[in-house]
Design a protein around this nucleic acid. Structure first.
Lengths: 221, 221
DNA sequence: TAGATTGTTAATCGATTAACAATC
DNA sequence: TAGATTGTTAATCGATTAACAATC
């Protein structure tokens, strides 16, 4: 005996599948590139070719958006960009902190692209006292004790895990406890996070291992 | 009228699905971690819990390997590690070059983890003359003209694309022409490569945008 | 107009999950 | 031995592709 479904689903749009959401950033990057080159229209064919998909997949994906293309012409580049930005929630810019001031952590802190795309790094932290106090771009490496206050005080949404695998789960826990809502995990291990904290893995070594497999296959075992 | 299938498929093992191959690095990382901690056996349950999978998925995945677990005990950590290393083709170490000596390129060049995992960076290249000649760890930034010779001379298997999106396809073409068999793409755009060249994307900005979506959803639109 | 391209439905394909006999 | 865990088959679920009427 289950509870009935809501009799009227007012304004209830069905969720967009994760597989589709993961492709949206690719569409967005392409659409921004062609806009800068002055294109006004882009077809599902052209998108498919540029992104290594089928036009059928493209049309299916874009049908989840609150925007329709035009027969015979395709999608208006400017409109498509606008709606993708909106769906992904990119009109608001997000603040991040990085935990781990090794090579990777420091590089990410210096990487201008993130800021340009609306993700601003507000702090960098490391448990190693010998790194604390050193400068990384405009930031100073702080101790882990300072994490909680910074996240609360500066409205930090995203924590970046740039520490060795052995420390990754502890850092994830500390970031979640400090109140971030998303974790970007560059450590090679899986980290668990509670309800209300999203985790996305950046597969650095894993991607190289994937390549190693592909290369081995090419070589014919 | 098609050609008949080979009547006898001697030693023909069916290909392992890409979805499974992408999970193998995660299994491997975990198995190495628990080995270092002294564990001898690991069950599909334990693996599932640690990696955020179901035990059913774990058993399906591992059934593609040329190794069987043991009823009541699970999988032998040491054996599982060995077979995963073998399947992924990680007994041979691979040489890489990095194209792009910006923050990300330099950080990857300095990142010791890759070497430790069997991926050694043999050169770093940039088209910007003001960067050429500068030192990055033990390497000197070289011009793009030097790329072809280096790849041929040093048996380079993998090229890392660490340039802005606008240059990514050109760099991919240059690397493929120079003879690499795999591309690790850190630029935000899709790159195409011919037959015999594998491409794996590292989703840096895309992952942040995925997080932005998840965070927007938590916040309730 | 004629032709090209969308949005959508249906078909196919593949991946995940459930279930359970075999087994140590 | 009894109980726990594997390997595998079958069922389910979801994602991709094909096809085509609607349309500008």
């Amino acid at each position: 005996m289950r509870a009935d479904k809501k009799p009227v689903m007012n304004e209830m749009r069905k969720a967009i599948p994760a597989s589709v959401i993961r492709r949206f950033p690719k569409y967005l990057a392409h659409v921004q590139a062609v806009r800068e080159v002055g294109e006004v229209w882009v077809s599902s064919q052209a998108l498919a070719l540029a992104l290594g998909l089928t036009s059928s997949t493209v049309r299916q994906d874009l049908s989840h958006l609150d925007y329709s293309g035009v027969s015979k012409r395709g999608y208006k580049v400017e409109e498509l960009e606008k709606i993708l930005v909106k769906v992904l929630g990119l009109e608001v810019s997000r603040n991040m902190v990085i935990v781990g001031a090794g090579n990777i952590g420091r590089a990410l802190a210096l990487h201008g692209d993130f800021h340009r795309k609306g993700f601003t790094i507000r702090g960098i932290f490391d448990s190693d006292p010998s790194l604390q106090g050193s400068r990384v771009g405009g930031l100073t490496v702080q101790s882990m004790d300072a994490l909680k206050g910074a996240v609360a005080g500066e409205k930090i949404d995203i924590g970046v895990i740039a520490v060795p695998a052995s420390a990754a789960q502890d850092v994830a826990d500390a970031l979640a406890k400090a109140g971030v809502k998303g974790l970007l995990n560059l450590a090679g291990t899986h980290v668990r996070a509670g309800e209300g904290v999203a985790v996305v893995d950046v597969r650095l070594v894993a991607s190289l291992q994937e390549l190693a497999y592909a290369i081995k296959m090419f070589e014919g075992e």
